[in-house]
Design a protein around this nucleic acid. Structure first.
Length: 608
RNA sequence: CGGGGCGUGGCGCAGCUUGGUAGCGCGGGUGCUUUGGGAGCACUAGGUCGCAGGUUCGAAUCCUGUCGCCCCGACCA
């Protein structure tokens, strides 16, 4: 391709809309253009990159025996109603774009395809003899993100490879899951990315085991916690660790574990309380009052106890609440702090915020108009493990010192609700500590189990002639996000440094001075030779000064640059590798034999 | 939705406090010069100052409303 015909528009200044390096570079180098919040046009260079990534994904998926397909993007609401996800995905903070057709039927624009593919599988897969099957597609997904960000990183329309596997039993699912794990590692390695696999929460998709693949980068939206020995890595929303030892309360249980009242005027924060009385924050019992809202309208007040030095992990809490309530009330839509305004609207008396204790009685909720009238009481095991503690007296300006579970009030079951923090000791080896790094999630694999197949009635006949629900796994890769993540990980002050396997072109031939016939002619010759050898090559034939062409070549990040310049008359050209900056002068006649082997290695996704 | 900020030629910005009818850099076009790291000179095209009201002799500038976008939090490939 000739650069003069490429519709290449590069920007000298950083666009105001971009914040992180990869977003700025993709805009500046003419790869993408924004059409609206979270909506981007993939310009010709970008589209080539996306096709390269897709090609790698396709080859590795095909190699595992997975079948490529293409499913509809408009999904009948009825399918999502049957799986129980319609309300959660469309109401409130839901992320599914939805609409009605001319007949008034509700449709959703596919944010993910479990429902559609499960319906299909239930229709087609009738016998264990047909299993296992793994179906995948590479397609645009739509999600009405609360806040689209960072260009292709979090768009409202993005390209995703999603795969869904179907099995006759759980063991077979585990095998496919492991196989996808291996395929994913190959895919990311071939795309030239440094990734780390971490344990993850399975979130709205549901299911049991799940693992995310993170591209490590400063601008990543996820916090990764990993042990130094490399044996444990998890997303912070999922990470487990050992809490630091609590400092024992010197006076212990007092009196008889009921706690002695202590005047604590204005000391409504843990910090204030510790400063005023010399407590350690691990001696305090922190009690949070929250309200969970469910699909069926049920509103459940939550009373959550944590040790004072610990932070609540919202994801773990949501999982614990769902596990206890979703069977009766449908999907958990939201958990929010219970505010004073909300409680007075509810017709309740004043709540002593800042002075709450776990002994808070359900009687407080007696007059509630719409809320459940008993608290769902949950506690982190760091809190239930305290022998004696300081907690609020449920009276303004008063705390109790020396209170204990069992005496003050019954101890709730100890759960894991705390957020693991960098520096925490690891569970697998207490001598190891968690270290933090940031990552961009580019892949996620789940063992779904039978959640969707049961909901949608996707059943098969097993070897004994009995019908049962299909076992399922699902496996996603953010193709467009991966492409930008590559830029985020691989760029320098001059521009993008594409890994050869996913670069839009492999080589750019730069004619330094197009006014010189010898340069022009040699450039054309090399260009046609490279094309004839099947090389993806650009010829910068623009009527620009050499400096402009060099700057652009660096910016758009083509892995190899062949400069046809002053020495062209003597039959010499310069070969420059973009990522290392390494350059060598060689005879034009020796170019092909020097370059082609390196290109071949690049195509395999190996180091050049 | 809550909190912050910004809307001025294609892009990046100044002008606004203290009203007088719009300017700079980049980019575009033409010509000459230049020709190995975002060239120089000259000429040139291109703007309902987000939109709607209001105040005023006069509004990019002041007031009110409204719309849009960006950034920080809840979402995820």
């Amino acid at each position: 391709m000739r650069v003069s015909r490429l519709m290449l528009v590069t920007l000298r200044d950083d666009p105001a809309e971009a914040e992180i390096p990869s977003h700025k570079l993709l805009l500046r180098a003419g790869y993408i253009r924004r059409m609206g919040p979270g909506l981007y046009a993939y310009l010709p260079l970008m589209w080539r990159v996306l096709q390269k990534v897709s090609k790698v994904v396709r080859e590795e998926m095909d190699a595992t025996g997975a079948l490529e397909t293409l499913l509809p993007q408009l999904h009948p609401a009825e399918l999502w109603q049957r799986s129980g996800r319609w309300a959660g995905y469309t109401a409130g903070e839901g992320i599914m774009f939805h609409l009605q057709d001319r007949q008034g039927r509700s449709l959703g624009l596919g944010p993910t395809h479990e429902e559609v593919v499960t319906e299909l599988a239930g229709d087609l897969l009738r016998s264990y003899r047909q299993l296992p099957v793994n179906l995948y597609q590479i397609q645009t997904k739509f999600r009405d993100e609360i806040r689209p960000r960072f260009g292709l990183m979090r768009g409202r329309e993005f390209i995703m490879k999603d795969a869904y596997s179907f099995h006759a039993d759980e063991e077979c699912l585990r095998q496919s899951y492991a196989e996808m794990d291996r395929a994913y590692r190959r895919i990311f390695a071939r795309c030239g990315l440094r990734t780390v696999a971490v344990e993850a929460d399975s979130g709205a998709i549901g299911g049991s085991a799940s693992q995310e693949f993170m591209v490590t980068a400063e601008a990543g939206e996820d916090l990764i916690l990993a042990s130094g020995d490399g044996r444990y890595a998890a997303n912070q929303e999922r990470a487990i660790s050992l809490a630091a030892e609590a400092v024992a309360l010197p006076q212990g249980r007092w009196p008889a574990g009921l706690g002695e009242a202590l005047a604590t005027p204005g000391q409504s924060s843990i910090d204030g309380l510790c400063k005023a009385h010399g407590f350690d924050s691990s001696q305090i019992l922190k009690v949070l009052l929250l309200l969970a809202r469910f699909e069926d309208g049920h509103q459940q007040p939550l009373l959550v106890s944590l040790r004072g030095d610990q932070q609540l992990n919202d994801v773990k809490l949501a999982n614990a609440v769902s596990a206890r309530c979703s069977a009766a009330h449908g999907a958990l839509l939201e958990i929010a702090p219970l505010s004073a305004e909300a409680s007075s609207k509810e017709g309740l008396g004043p709540i002593p915020f800042g002075y709450l204790g776990p002994q808070l009685e359900d009687g407080l909720l007696d007059g509630a108009r719409t809320w459940a009238r008993t608290f769902l009481r949950l506690a982190d095991s760091s809190a239930t493990g305290l022998e004696a503690f300081v907690c609020g007296a449920n009276r303004i300006d008063t705390h109790l010192v020396g209170a204990a579970w069992g005496s003050l009030c019954p101890s709730p079951e100890g759960l894991d609700l705390r957020a693991a923090q960098p520096g925490d000791r690891c569970q697998h080896d207490p001598s190891q500590r968690l270290e933090a790094s940031r990552g961009i999630e580019v892949g996620h694999i789940f063992q779904l189990g039978r959640k969707y197949s049961e909901a949608l009635g996707a059943r098969f006949t097993n070897g004994t002639g009995a019908e049962e629900a299909l076992w399922m796994g699902c496996y996603g890769i953010g193709v467009s996000r991966l492409a930008q993540a590559a830029v985020e990980q691989l760029h320098d002050g001059k521009g993008i440094c594409w890994p050869p396997s996913i670069a839009p072109y492999e080589v750019i031939v730069v004619v330094a001075n197009g006014a010189e016939a010898s340069q022009r002619e040699l450039g054309e010759l090399l260009y046609s030779q490279l094309q004839a050898s099947g090389v993806e090559v650009l010829l910068d034939d623009r009527d620009e000064r050499a400096g402009v062409k060099f700057k652009d070549a660096d910016l758009i990040g083509i892995p190899w640059r062949v400069v046809v310049g002053r020495a062209a008359a003597a039959g010499l050209v310069e070969l420059v590798e973009r990522c290392s900056g390494h350059q060598q002068e060689l005879a034009a006649t020796a170019l092909m034999e020097t370059l082609l082997p390196s290109l071949e290695r690049g195509r395999q996704g190996l180091a050049p």
